[in-house]
């Protein structure tokens, strides 16, 4: 059966001494440095920005609600009179963390399950990969809806649920890669030299499949930021008073007529962050897999 994945990746070119590193290669391409710069800006502003302002992001001032931009409030205020810029920065902390951490969850789960299935094959493969099939057969959204209804919408749950809805795709890519890798000379050589299976798996096989998984994972961060936003749109994501770009967008829905900026800022921020991750993912793929450009 042919393996299929969102990003059909081939084995990355092993690093040759003397050739520039991944980061250097990335910085040579416009998509690479633009996206990296954008991400540094977004993460930097979200995590460092609020430190400059001692105001509380949750303190409400109903009599100063829905103000337009001014020197005091560069992006205006929201429906409860909170500074919109500060909310955006705090919301960024949450949205950007949810995106990144949930993808780490998917990466770890995908690497372990896909890698083990591809390396050990046999019954392990059948069980693990059918499990992946089951997960993949439920459209992610339906699964997430059910899970959030059960476990509630606290940030750790949202992170876990979003991450686990992506791990199947990750596992399939890693599985396909591992299948190819295990045939290769260096794995066979390591086994012939008497290395334990655990050692071969973690020291020899996994490092070879990690780059492909990282490319998929980078694209996946954007996907999970979007997913959190969509969940919040349906009222199931991160819950107020904690701000996230997703729930800010949802909260802004009734104000699109009178205070459209409340919907435009978080929408733009989401689009920018996701765009940056997508560009970075594409650039990474080009760097790690230079055959197709």
């Amino acid at each position: 059966m042919p393996s299929r994945s969102l990003t059909q990746l081939r084995r990355p070119v092993a690093r040759v001494p003397g050739r520039p590193g991944v980061l250097a290669l990335l910085l040579r391409r416009p998509a690479g440095w633009i996206s990296l710069a954008l991400l540094v800006l977004l993460y930097g502003a979200s995590f460092l920005g609020p430190l400059l302002d001692h105001h509380s992001a949750t303190a409400t001032h109903p009599l100063h609600a829905l103000l337009g931009p001014s020197w005091l409030h560069p992006l205006g205020t929201d429906d409860l009179g909170r500074d919109e810029l500060l909310r955006m920065l705090y919301g960024g902390r949450v949205s950007l963390s949810v995106g990144l951490i949930s993808m780490v969850v998917a990466l770890v789960a995908g690497l372990l399950v896909g890698g083990l299935a591809g390396y050990l094959r046999g019954a392990v493969e059948t069980i693990l990969m059918r499990l992946v099939d089951a997960f993949m057969a439920i459209p992610a959204f339906f699964l997430i809806l059910a899970e959030l209804a059960v476990f509630g919408s606290s940030p750790p749950v949202v992170i876990l649920v979003v991450g686990l809805s992506f791990w199947g795709q990750m596992a399939r890519v890693v599985f396909a890669e591992s299948l190819k890798m295990r045939q290769r000379e260096f794995i066979e050589a390591a086994q012939a030299l008497g290395a334990s299976r655990t050692r071969v798996f973690f020291r020899h096989l996994l490092p070879q499949v990690v780059p492909s998984a990282i490319v998929l994972g980078t694209l996946g961060v954007g996907w999970s930021i979007l997913t959190e936003a969509a969940l919040s749109f349906l009222g199931l994501g991160i819950q107020p008073p904690l701000a996230s770009w997703g729930n800010m967008l949802q909260n802004a829905q009734v104000y699109v007529w009178t205070s459209p900026w409340l919907a435009i800022y978080p929408g733009l921020a989401i689009a920018l962050a996701v765009l940056a991750f997508n560009l970075l993912g594409n650039a990474l793929r080009d760097v790690l897999d230079p055959r197709i450009r």
Binding site: A229, L249, A271
Partner: peptide, 13 residues
């Protein structure tokens, strides 16, 4: 890539 980055409910609105 931009299309992939826009939240669909935002675009719809």
């Amino acid at each position: 890539t931009l299309g992939m980055s826009l939240p669909e409910f935002w675009l719809g609105t």
